[in-house]
């Protein structure tokens, strides 16, 4: 094509930026100029910015739990100093979101539950990102037999009925029984690193063939140095985007397990997911018990997805959003 003009449909041209990696020379310290471009792009994206602001508010909000904590915490029935409460109360001045099936203050539980849900999301994203980056960069950098083996492991994990295995683990693996936050994070992380590993592997494979990596190798840089100095900084963007999206997936998966009754045990601590487990049966009696945690999950996950999308656009303006 001689003219860049053939598209039968108009589509906005995206401005191009200098690829970040072209600047990362061998001995030049990694300047923040590519990142300032990314930051500028991200801050120009209003939807992502609003989403980020909402997320920050949600986190502050759930962290403010201790401020309210001395106020009818898990009190069943009447406690000294508290008003005698009934289950399934509607919202009132004392109980902003009413009370749940055993008379606990729903507002407090939303705060506490949000804390746990968000923590699980972040923790799972962090752990699975570390696993994914290690496996992916190893596989992509060394290639050959290691790569083939690791990638067939990834394929294998991807072809598993994952939720079913998670449920199995919560019931049959001794250390993961009981529905503690720790065990849920371990189980979710174990089954969530594959996409990241695959993405990182792909990126590493292309980076490995770049001139400056060759140059570094010629200059006698160690593999460790090449990976940490040249490969990892350049895949940081992709990893960050993928990690953000995996926070969203982890929050949804945790809530699904909890909804089914196998996530974080409601006896130990509330999460938005396990609050919904009991609330869905009494939705006709007290819709707010369903809607409050449900909106908590949806708004949080949507904001995380928006931020992830914003990051993706900021790092790679050519990308077209196509789901996850």
């Amino acid at each position: 094509m001689t003219e860049s003009f053939h598209d039968p449909l108009e589509h906005p041209k995206v401005p191009t930026i200098v690829p970040a990696d072209d600047h990362a020379g061998e001995e030049v310290p990694f300047t923040d100029s590519p990142f300032s471009i990314v930051r500028k792009r991200f801050f120009a994206n209003r939807a992502a910015l609003v989403a980020l602001a909402i997320l920050v508010l949600i986190v502050i909000f759930t962290m403010s739990y201790p401020l309210f904590a001395n106020y009818v915490v898990h009190s069943t029935y009447s406690e000294p100093g508290s008003i005698s409460v009934l289950p399934y109360q509607g919202p009132s001045a004392q109980h902003w979101l009413g009370t749940d099936d055993i008379s606990r203050d729903e507002f407090l539980r939303i705060l506490k539950g949000g804390q746990i849900s968000i923590f699980v999301g972040l923790a799972v994203a962090a752990v699975s990102t570390v696993i994914g980056v290690v496996i992916g960069s190893y596989s992509g950098f060394f290639g050959g037999r290691a790569d083939r083996t690791l990638m067939s492991v990834v394929d294998f994990f991807l072809s598993l009925p994952v939720i079913a295995l998670m449920l199995t683990a919560t019931k049959f693996v001794p250390i993961l029984k009981g529905g503690s936050v720790f065990s849920v994070v371990v189980i979710l992380s174990f089954f969530s690193w594959m996409i990241l590993a695959r993405v990182v592997r792909g990126e590493t494979l292309t980076l490995r063939e770049r001139e400056y990596v060759h140059a570094a190798r010629m200059a006698g840089a160690s593999t460790w140095r090449i990976i940490t100095r040249h490969v990892l900084p350049n895949i940081a963007g992709v990893v960050l985007v993928q990690a953000t999206l995996s926070v969203a997936i982890a929050i949804i998966t945790e809530s699904t397990l909890s909804f089914l009754g196998f996530g974080v045990s409601p006896a130990l601590t509330p999460t938005w997911g396990n609050m919904l487990n009991s609330a869905s049966d009494v939705i006709s009696r007290s819709p707010i018990l369903f809607w409050a945690p449900a909106l908590g999950i949806i708004v949080t996950v949507m904001c995380v997805n928006f931020v992830g999308d914003g990051l993706r656009d900021a790092f790679d303006p050519k990308s077209i959003r196509g789901g996850q």
Binding site: L9, H11, P12, A248, I252, S255, T256, F259, G273, L276, S280, I283, F290, A294, I297, I298, V301, M302, N305, F306, G323, Q324
Partner: peptide, 28 residues
Amino acid sequence: IKPYTLGDRLASGASFVGFSAPVFFWAV
């Protein structure tokens, strides 16, 4: 076929909600 029109934007917004909400939310 009609990118960046109202319909496309609505679909895009709806799909965002669609995959941000857990399955059990829709079920209930």
